[in-house]
């Protein structure tokens, strides 16, 4: 029964966060300097008096605030995130169209950074004090301090413009006309630079975290017990240290999902990757507020879902959770 309670509580929490972001969006629209209607319309739409009048009616902008909130909430929860005057499309359609590209990029970057980060962290901890350790940790320190967008630009400068190894822009070769495997390969080719540049910052974080966690676990009593049993060092690391050390890294990584999406805005901007990050940047340039707020809401929802899944998974991996909750 406890598990049911847990799932129920987590679902409730997730729902509240999404609801909270919707309300936050609503408040932002009303707190913004200027007329809420022009915010809802976006800068381009604000010039169109008929459109503004229509928005006033639709959102009941002359009605009491709580009623406006209700109208707004009902719309948002049924998938109506407003209309992009600039694009002449519903915001939801725009976002759903771009979402897969972002999920592909962030997913790849997540796996890349987690795998590489854990690997480097384990090696550094195992070879603590060696040249390898110093090299890995210095690298991590540097990439932890480097702005994502600048790494992306430098990567384009070196690998695309100078070496001409990898394509600098877009998700596919324009007019390439590839299909099937050839297309997948083409996308993969375009994916490398964005994935690596987005992932490196997070790789640095996970490397540092894994190393610290490994060293911490290696100093715990049960590792001494394993030695007292006559277990060889390599097996101790594999069977006893690794699992205990990596669990906190996973928890932390899933909490970083939001950061990853934030990083995607920058990466997609540099690489003209057709995802919602790029959409957000375009909306910024055009002052297209409905799109901006819509992307914000959807990214929050995605993060909430990722956290939910990781929480539920975590329960299977760590037997202690059930006792603690």
């Amino acid at each position: 029964m406890k598990s049911l309670d847990f799932v129920f509580q987590r679902l409730l929490k997730a729902a509240f966060v999404v609801l909270g972001v919707v309300i936050l969006n609503f408040l932002l629209v009303h707190m913004a300097p200027g007329d809420p209607a022009s915010v809802l319309a976006g800068e381009a739409g604000a010039g169109d008096a008929k459109y503004i009048a229509q928005l006033r009616a639709q959102f009941g902008l002359d009605q009491p605030l709580y009623q406006q909130l209700w109208t707004y909430l009902r719309g948002a929860l049924t998938g109506d995130l407003g209309f992009s005057y600039r694009n002449q499309l519903p915001v939801m359609t725009l976002i759903l169209d771009r979402l897969p590209a972002t999920l592909l990029l962030t997913g790849c970057a997540f796996v890349f950074s987690l795998v590489l980060g854990i690997l480097l962290g384990v090696v550094a901890a195992y070879r603590r004090g060696s040249v390898t350790d110093s090299a890995v940790m210095t690298g991590a320190l540097i990439f932890y301090a480097t702005p994502l967008f600048w790494v992306a630009l430098m990567a384009v400068l070196v690998f695309s413009l100078h070496l001409d190894w990898l394509p600098p822009f877009d998700m596919e070769t324009i007019g390439g006309g590839y299909t099937g495997w050839a297309r997948a390969l083409d996308i993969g080719h375009h994916l490398i630079l964005p994935t690596v540049t987005l992932g490196l910052f997070f790789t640095a974080i996970y490397t540092r975290l894994t190393r610290a966690s490994m060293l911490e676990v290696m100093s715990l009593d049960f590792v001494k017990t394993a030695r007292a049993k006559g277990v060889p060092q390599a097996r101790i690391i594999r069977r006893h240290v690794l699992r205990n050390a990596i669990l906190p890294v996973f928890t932390f990584a899933s909490m970083q999902a939001g950061q990853l999406v934030g990083g995607a805005v920058l990466t997609e901007t540099v690489f003209a990757w057709p995802g919602i990050g790029r959409l957000m940047f375009d909306a910024l340039l055009q002052r297209d507020y409905p799109v901006l707020l819509g992307v914000f809401l959807v990214t929050a929802a995605v993060v909430v879902i990722v956290n939910l899944i990781s929480d539920l998974l975590y329960r299977f991996v760590d037997p202690r959770i059930e006792a603690a909750s």
Binding site: V29, P33, G262, L292, F296, V303
Partner: peptide
């Protein structure tokens, strides 16, 4: 803590973008 968790869950950078954009 619910309040804090809320702010911790929503993507920080995206929120910063929205805040700065809306308030100029």
């Amino acid at each position: 803590m619910r309040f804090t968790e809320f702010f911790q869950t929503i993507p920080a950078f995206a929120m910063a973008i929205v805040l700065v954009a809306i308030f100029n």
